[in-house]
Design a protein around this nucleic acid. Sequence first.
DNA 1: GTCTATAATCCGATAGAC
DNA 2: GTCTATCGGATTATAGAC
Lengths: 228, 228
Amino acid sequence: MSPTRALFTVFTMSEQRENILVHASDLFVKDGVEGFSMRKLARRVGVTAPALYRHFDSREALVFAVLGEAYRRMSRHLYAALEGESPRERLRLAGEGYVTFALEHPRLYDALFASPELVGIAELPPEVEAQGCAVGRFWNDRIRECMDAGILRRADPEAVGLTLWAHAHGLISLHARGLLMPGENGDTAAFMIIYRASIARLIQGLGVDVDEGDEQRDTLEAAAALPV
Amino acid sequence: MSPTRALFTVFTMSEQRENILVHASDLFVKDGVEGFSMRKLARRVGVTAPALYRHFDSREALVFAVLGEAYRRMSRHLYAALEGESPRERLRLAGEGYVTFALEHPRLYDALFASPELVGIAELPPEVEAQGCAVGRFWNDRIRECMDAGILRRADPEAVGLTLWAHAHGLISLHARGLLMPGENGDTAAFMIIYRASIARLIQGLGVDVDEGDEQRDTLEAAAALPV
DNA sequence: GTCTATAATCCGATAGAC
DNA sequence: GTCTATCGGATTATAGAC
C-alpha cells in the first residue's frame, strides 16, 4: 500500500462497512427513525457523507442492514428460550425474551414494527421479512408444545399465538408511549410486573367461572396494587 | 370592506381557520404523519404557505388542532356505546367503536399513539392529554359495570381494562402493518372476525380448565378456520 | 388576509481530484 | 476509499407590500 493512499485508507472495505453498520445502529438507537440521516451518520463515523456511498448504495440499503441486524438481535433473545427444560418454561422464556428485547432496544423495536414509509423505505427487504416469519414459527411452536403438554387449552396454535403476540405488542407500545404509568415513567421493573400480571389474566380468562363466581387470585391482587 | 381588500379576503378569520383545519385533517388522513407539511397543506387549501401562519402560530399548533379533532372523533365513536341497553352490550359496543375508529381513520389512530417527536412536536398538549384520560375512564367504567353485573370476573377494573386495551391496540397495530393476513390485506371483515375471536379467547382464558380438559368452543373453531 | 420574496436549514446523492 | 464542492430538492418561518 503506497504512503499516499495510506493517508485515507484506515479501514479495509469490509471492516469499514462493519464499522458504519455499528455506528448506524447506534444512531438509530439514539435518535430513532426520524433522526437518522446520512450526514449525521458520517459525522459519527468520522468521515464525510459521500464516503458512505462507497459501502452502501443508498440510505435505503443502509436502513435495510440496520433492520436486519435488529431482527438478528431479537431472534437471539427469543431463541435463548430453548434453554428452558419444559414446554411451560420455554414459553415463559420466549415471552420474557421478546419483551426484554423490546425494552432494551425500544427504537429498534419501533423500527421493526413501523410502516416502511415511516422508516423512509418503500418496503421491507425479503431477507428481513423471512426472519420475521421464522420468529413467528418459533413462537407458534412454543404454544403448540404447551398445548400438547396440556398446559394450554387445545386450539389453533397460530390463533392463540396471535392473541398473545398482540397483547404483548400492545402493552409494549403503550408503555413506550408513556401511557401506562402516570407518574414515574421508564420504570421497567414496574412494567414487567404489569406485563406478567396481564398475561396471567389472559391464561386464567377475564370471564366469570361457571362455578366459583367472584374468586380472586394472587396475581390479580398483585396487579391491582399497582398504580396503572 | 373596500374592493381592493375583497380581492384577497374570501373567508373571515375563523371560517378560514376551520377550513384549514378540515383540509389539514384530510391531508393527515391521506399522507400520514411523515407527509404532512405546511406547503402541501397550503397548496390543498388554495393559498400560499405564509397565509397559514395568520391562523396558526406554527406547524406544531396545527398538529395539536388536528390531534384534538382526532380525539374528539374517537370519543364520539366510543360514547355511542351508551346506546347499549345492558352492561355487556355497552362493553361490546365500546370495543367495536374503538376498533371501528381505528379502521376508519388509520392515520389518525397512528398519530394519536405515535411518539410526539415522530409527529414533529415536542409533547402532547394538555387538552389532548385530558381527552385521553377521559376515554380511559369511560372504558374502565364499562368494565366495572360488567363486573358489578357478574359478567366479568371481579378484579381491578383498571388492570383488566389495560389488558383488553393492550390486546386491541396490539391487534390493530399489527393489522395496520399488514402482519396478520399473508395474502389479501386490508380486508376489514376478516380482521373483525379475528378481532372478535381473539377477544372471546381473552374472556374464556387460554389455560386449561381444571375439570373439562381439552374441550373446544364455537368461537375458537371459527377463529381456527381463518388463515392467520 | 394574502401575496411575493427570501432567509436559514436540512436532506440525499453525484463528479472529479488525490 | 476518502476528500471537496456542488446540485437539486425539501422544509419551517419571517419581512414587507397591497
